[in-house]
Simulated assay, not measured.
Amino acid sequence: MSVERFEQVHLLPITLEKAWDFFGRPENLATITPPWLGFKVTSPPQPEMYAGMIITYTVRPLLGLPLSWVTEITHCEAPRYFIDEQRLGPYRLWHHQHLFREVPQGVEMRDIVHFALPLGPLGRIASGMVRKKIRAIFAYRREVVERLWPIGTKG
């Protein structure tokens, strides 16, 4: 199994509490996920994120076919970080760290994703395409975040 790594850092001109309030709510994921992924949270909203929380989704990553995805919040320390890990879904391994750190300009948000694909040799063949899609998903996320909180504002 080959484990891939993706990392993105983004500066948010908002407070740590505002960042946590937005990114710590699974129902906001659809807002920052590209429409072409057909992403929908199917679990009921929870008042706050906690370790052990299970979140269910549907996604349409390939040919528009719906796929169930289940993640668990394995670690959570509000408002500093949370980690979600796939329990059921398209990856053999999915481990996503969401890290938030106060900086003079606002909040540094760091996403670190480790993932591996199923299907052995077929997964290795598809890995380039999957890396490209993950980069596109996070590029879209960056665009949305910059529209929500333009640089130069402080919220």
Rank of each mutant, 00 (worst) to 15 (best):
R5D: 10
F6D: 00
Q8F: 02
H10F: 09
H10C: 11
L12M: 02
P13H: 04
F22I: 01
T31V: 08
I32G: 01
P34F: 00
W36S: 08
S43A: 12
P44C: 07
P45W: 02
E48C: 15
Y50S: 09
Y50A: 11
A51G: 06
G52E: 10
I54H: 13
I55Y: 01
T58C: 07
V59S: 08
R60L: 01
L62R: 13
L62C: 13
L65C: 04
P66L: 15
I73F: 07
H75I: 01
H75T: 02
Y81F: 13
F82N: 13
I83L: 14
I83M: 09
I83R: 11
D84G: 00
Q86A: 14
P90A: 08
P90W: 01
W94F: 11
Q97L: 14
H98A: 05
H98R: 08
L99W: 12
L99I: 12
E102V: 09
E102L: 11
V103N: 07
R110S: 03
I112S: 14
V113F: 12
V113D: 08
A116F: 07
L117E: 02
P118D: 09
L122V: 03
G123N: 00
V130T: 08
K133F: 10
I134T: 06
R135D: 04
I137P: 01
R142S: 02
V145T: 09
L148D: 06
L148A: 13
L148P: 02
